[in-house]
């Protein structure tokens, strides 16, 4: 049942809103004028060097240690997309920031032989993302990582400043697969399970994934 909210009828004086605005300004102004006398200021200005502002972007804000970073897709050392489009991250994502388009039957062949599929499109809405890290935790392929620092071998010029995820409009803040892969960089896969599986199968003279070129020849 919807609850009907009774609106308070405002008088003409109240409807002008000017006195309300003025009252608001008064509070702001009083804080502005009294800040230097406050305990907060005394606390922060112990070493007499406190500045309330930063010269961004030359000066960077220190990210609190609790920040996990932002989710990006990674490629393995052979530059192959690791994601197999299982959509578990999409399922687990609390704010539904992730959207995966599966490849379908006629999709591109996966980069890694044996993995059979990879996403056609992978989008993360960074405005929706709450940087909780569930996607990283749930990923069975170690294909998505939350990252805030560049890791070994990463181009320093491209060093990500995740606390400054910016864009000039909403569409720009929806990162697509290419952007996520570019930012994710390389993750060294020590196990290489699909490669191992394919090699084992070949040793047994079984061909785990249908040879598409062979199909075309027929």
């Amino acid at each position: 049942m919807a609850i009907k909210v009774q609106r308070v009828k405002l008088s003409l004086w109240e409807r002008l809103f000017i006195p309300t605005l003025w009252n608001g300004f008064k509070v702001t102004l009083s804080h502005f004028l009294s800040f230097k006398k406050s305990k907060v200021y005394a606390e922060k200005n112990k070493d007499n060097k406190f500045k309330a502002t930063l010269s961004y972007p030359e000066e960077l804000w220190t990210v609190p240690p609790g920040f996990r970073g932002a989710p990006y897709l990674v490629s393995d050392q052979d530059a192959a997309t690791k994601c197999v489009s299982c959509q578990l991250c999409e399922f687990v994502c609390p704010p539904k920031a992730i959207r995966i388009t599966p490849p379908g039957e006629a999709g591109d062949t996966a980069h890694r032989e044996g993995a059979e599929k990879m996403p056609k499109e992978f989008e993360i809405d960074m405005l929706r993302c709450i940087f909780c890290g569930y996607c990283e935790e749930v990923c069975p392929e170690e294909a998505i990582y939350l990252a805030k620092d560049y890791y070994e071998g990463y181009d320093e010029k491209m060093m990500r400043r995740d606390y400054a995820l910016t864009g000039s409009n909403r569409e720009e803040m929806i990162f697509n697969k290419d952007k996520l892969l570019e930012r994710g960089g390389t993750h060294h896969d020590r196990i290489k399970k699909w490669e191992k599986k394919t090699a084992d199968a070949k040793a047994q003279e079984m061909f785990p994934v249908e040879d598409k070129s062979k199909k075309e020849r027929e």
Partner: peptide
């Protein structure tokens, strides 16, 4: 070693 059998057979 697991026995591997054909995959994606039409």
């Amino acid at each position: 070693q697991k026995v591997h059998k054909p995959k994606a057979v039409d």
